[in-house]
């Protein structure tokens, strides 16, 4: 019984085409938003806003197009560990370079 269940769980999940069209429209909208936001002068917040919108788009691509939503939970954990690792490497090195003073 257990074997049968595992086999069905391993079958790839086919998503409806309509979902993908909606996701694509959402990505197009977010691209428009990032262009619009860049026209407003917010100083340092422009860069933060650009990265925030890009991260939202990346999350949408990973969640729907890269099937993380439908896959086994191990993939979600792997991606989470990767994002945290990347965050530590980039974040700490960047902070280090800003507080250390001139090269």
């Amino acid at each position: 019984m257990k074997d049968v269940m595992e086999t069905t769980a391993e079958k790839p999940h086919a998503s409806p085409y309509g979902t993908y069209i909606l996701v694509w429209l959402c990505l197009m909208g977010l691209t428009g938003l990032t262009v619009a936001v860049s026209g407003v002068h917010l100083g340092n917040w422009n860069a933060a806003g650009a990265v925030a919108i890009a991260s939202t788009k990346a999350a949408v691509v990973i969640w729907y197009f890269m099937h993380l939503r439908y896959d086994k939970s191990i993939f979600r954990w792997m991606v989470l560990v990767m994002i945290i690792t990347l965050g530590i490497i980039l974040g700490l090195t960047f902070i280090d370079s800003t507080v250390r003073g001139p090269f």
């Binding site: 990265v51 990346a58 691509v61 890269m66």
Partner: peptide
């Protein structure tokens, strides 16, 4: 998966180089 990753990298490159 590879193709989507290539897309995601461009999603970051575009605003950081062209829009700021």
């Amino acid at each position: 998966l590879y193709w989507h990753l290539v897309d995601i990298i461009w999603v970051y490159l575009f605003p950081l180089y062209y829009l700021l």
